[in-house]
Amino acid sequence: MTETYTSLREHEGDLVVEAVDQVAEDVVAVTMADPGGDSLPPWTPGAHVDLILEPDLIRQYSLCGTPSDSRTIRVAILKAPDSRGGSVYVHQRVHPGSLVRVRGPRNHFPLVASPRYLFIAGGIGITPLLPMMAAASAAGADWTLLYGGRTLASMAFTDELGPYGNRVTLVPQDELGILDLDTALGQPRGDTLVYCCGPEGLLGAVEQRCAAWPAGALHLERFAAKPAEPDAAADKPFELVLARSGLILTVPADKSVFDVVQQAGVSILGSCHEGICGTCEQIVLDGEVDHRDSILSEDERALNETMMICVSRACSERLTLDL
């Protein structure tokens, strides 16, 4: 029998840093281009890339430039000393002329066409929303932005938001308190999509208030994995069928689906291994998924059509994937 081995990978390459701009207290915007001047892959609003800062230091950042610009991409990074090291690395060691390894882009926060949008940003969560607002304006949609931050000086891109005038409401917490979500989200609307990005507290609060909104109205992007995962000690082994590859495997209690698939020699994509980036999403053909990611909505989970195999497992004894 002849075997064609197929390997799958995401686009990856070294980009040269063209500019590092201070866009707020502790926030830098990094503009990067191909060193040879080649065009960069197309992307759409909501997309993010991995910055591979060191082999074990891979972080996701939303693209906040212009999708029609084929020459450069831009990300904005908040210096968070208590983070896992990515932001500090960028703030200290990335300068104009530096080479940065970039993987992607990919998009799990796509902007769906709508006559009206409500954008809600908390702090650095403004980044994926910037190209969305430009796209919404271009398409003639009606939109507003509610943008909260610690202080006005800590809020990035307020200058770029200026031309949008009264569509934008800036809410620095030290002056105006926290975002008034009850007023913004109190009345569910069928013609409006809600896009929210920011810290977990804000996302949770928005999620709660959107419970009464139509299914599919709320779109969230998380920077970190959702808290309160199920007790890992209760994990059980299950049988894993990879339909396309013709393989039957066992996922032991202490291994992820991702690891088992990869060890079986099947080429798959993966990045964050925490259920936040969406790279390893796979189509489920059969079996019940125990969803543990931070990407799929409750509705998408209930459909049982796809799963993030880096963290999610099976409730059933057998799980079949289109792999």
Partner: peptide, 16 residues
């Protein structure tokens, strides 16, 4: 002849 290994590379909107 026998097909050699196939390498597939993806981005958000393209496949190579």
């Amino acid at each position: 002849a026998l097909p050699p290994p196939l390498e597939v590379e993806v981005t958000e909107t393209t496949v190579s």
